[in-house]
Design a protein around this nucleic acid. Structure first.
Lengths: 230, 230, 230, 230
DNA sequence: TATGAATGAGTGTTCATTCAT
DNA sequence: CATGAATGAACACTCATTCAT
């Protein structure tokens, strides 16, 4: 784990203090516990509603102890943001193998949308937390640094799309970046919909069809085959 | 600092009505001023960063006076939410006539996307505030009640799409609701993208093409005609 | 009373807030009460031992109310420092008329030393507080700005000494500034002595004799006349 | 950063002694290191600004380890105070031989003032720390016990002055105690002056002249001889 | 309408100190 | 000897809200 230290006002004394702080197995566990709890609370009450007291209380430690692990609320937030960045493209729907290089890009995208639907059903808070952190980051540079969800996300989609273009399963004139961003925008907006979670599945399917019909080399074929499933 | 506005202009009729309810014209101005200022501050600092003190100070009144107009911070928030709901579908790009029944549904949607791009360029805070309020609403029922953006929004898109289906310019088997929601999801996610605002235009164009190619009765024609412009 | 506002990190919003704060008679009384109480507590526990809680409690108000009058602990400290600066040369021993232009400079200095002895006996905390604030100021520029004791003090002594030189009661080659600073140094060091307060009188007398014997035009005459009193 | 030192150098004999008491040479070094560091930090941030954490960090040990050597912050403070007491009269200006019984008392006093000026120039923090500790001591009896600067100081001056009176170089009716205290008061007040350190030299010279003109058996002679130098 | 004054309930953070290992 | 972990008790400061005037 990269040491998150992008704070600015730290004196040399402060630095020296922290540098000496060793890492134990127990300590890292606590760290994780705190991050997880903060994550859960952000999902519940939002970043603005997050209280260090609550995090500490839920973990069962003193507030001061929390500050032993995270000198500042923001450091905690950064840790949450950082972990979220990694978590976002690494947990595909079970049974599918999104991310595996074994499949064709088309199948990968298919799996990706399936995974998206799955995650929206099982861990919708992940999207909530991401958006919460994103908003917080837009007002705090230091948080923005730690929150690289989009970077990872876009890179992931880019690689699939490019591969698809190369292999001929996607249109050769496909603008990879724009497509990736369009998908991300859609994904980010999805959990912001004030509609029942049940309808999300359908909307994803609908969007998926749009995607395939627009990117597929042979538009007609894919579109028609999709329509049957819908 | 550009003055962002979501006011709609109180007619004289309205003034008279309010006056009979014990509300003076001056009082309503103050009310509006406060709402506007709150709106601006939410755009800047987020709902969580909104301070009644700041709102009052910017308007030039005492904090206590603010509470005369809005007994609670939440009442103020509700007022902002309410106005936002109306404002969202009523300010098309200048020169276009989105919303006018005079045009064909296809042209209306075309205008809609143009308006979207225009608004994202000129008043991006509106989307920020909307999302901010949405998050706040997800934790506060009373706010949720006041924030009916989605309702208005979806109704607006539904009406266009349905008319389009009726007139034959959109596919007859088009699932109007799903399509509307897909568009809304995309729109909501757009301002959450961590990319340069310049690229938003392109992404919108890209999405617009998807939309038309999927909904148009004659796919081939529209798609090809689009591609030329792009 | 000059408005003490030499803070740096205040946003425009903050400024606007404070600017609107009017001054009432009642408010100014409270202000004074708080300053006095802070002064007393500094005398007791030192600047480092000053707690806003204690100040508020002694005055009988909520801690938050204290912050209504003084946005920061330091603003309170500044107010104390400022008042101390004025108070230091304006309260002569009763019965004497130090500061009056009616007397000769020699008599004024005589009265000054008498006043010094008197003040050390009656309000020794004043010196303690002054030194406390001085130390605090040496680590805080903003405090230093408000604490102009030395400036006032030196100006006061300078004027007397200069007048004395002009009138011929003090040596014509007297270095006024050095003499003033020597006296101030002595005065500042006095309350730092770990000896019984009773002996302070004698030491002051001793120092006074030094002063007069060194500054008097006719050394022999004054010295001998002094010795009789001692 | 210039290394300020108030250590005195532990002899081997001392080491052996301590070792028998359960104190190792290494332990004593650490002890000294901690005291020195505390001393330096007091000079920088004042007694109130001293943090055990900082002391430990600068020495390179854990805070808990510091408490092994000094069970309480106050014990550490006491140790600093104690060492300061000794250090205050034992480091004369190099080249002079203040403290040596070989010279006449007048020369000793001359050397003393020279040393004072020298110390104020080279190690002004010593005076700062002394005053800091003095203030702290005035609120803490235990510290006061350890801080016997004045006792040592006065004893030192007394011995010189008494010897001078005996030898006839100082006035026979000189009140030794009062004179010593006057000098100490002046010395203590000196570093509290808000003036440029350059002017301190002149003020000391000025005061020295006062001293000699008042104490010398033949006033006229010394005074005139002084004036030439000034 | 408007305000100065006042407040309760937090809010993140600090710090000397303790203790098992 | 040394340390990582933990904590109680503060601490300055914030903020929405209330109320007499």
């Amino acid at each position: 784990m990269k040491t998150t230290s992008l704070s600015k006002g730290t004196s040399r004394l402060e630095e020296r203090r922290r540098a000496q702080q060793g890492r134990t197995a127990h300590g890292d566990e606590r760290r994780q516990e705190l991050i997880q709890t903060a994550y859960r609370l952000i999902a519940e009450k939002g970043v603005g509603g997050l209280r260090t007291r609550d995090v500490a209380a839920l973990v069962g430690i003193n507030t001061a102890t929390l500050h032993y692990y995270f000198p500042t609320k923001e450091h905690l937030l950064q840790a949450v943001a950082q972990q979220l960045g990694y978590a976002f493209t690494t947990s595909p729907a079970p049974g599918t193998s999104a991310g595996d290089g074994a499949n064709t890009p088309s199948e990968q995208m298919e799996a990706y949308f399936a995974s998206l639907a799955y995650q929206l059903r099982t861990t919708p808070e992940r999207f909530v937390v991401m958006n919460e952190l994103f908003f917080a980051a837009s007002r705090d540079e230091r948080l923005a640094g730690a929150l690289e969800v989009d970077t990872h996300w876009q890179a992931y989609l880019n690689s699939i799309l490019e591969e698809g273009v190369k292999q001929g399963s996607f249109r050769s004139d496909l603008n990879v970046e724009q497509t990736a961003l369009t998908i991300i925008a859609f994904c980010k907006g999805l959990p912001l919909l004030q509609s029942q979670p049940d309808s999300l599945d359908k909307i994803i399917t609908s969007f998926k069809n749009w995607f395939f019909s627009m990117t597929a080399t042979a538009i007609e074929k894919r579109t028609s085959s999709r329509h049957k499933r819908e």
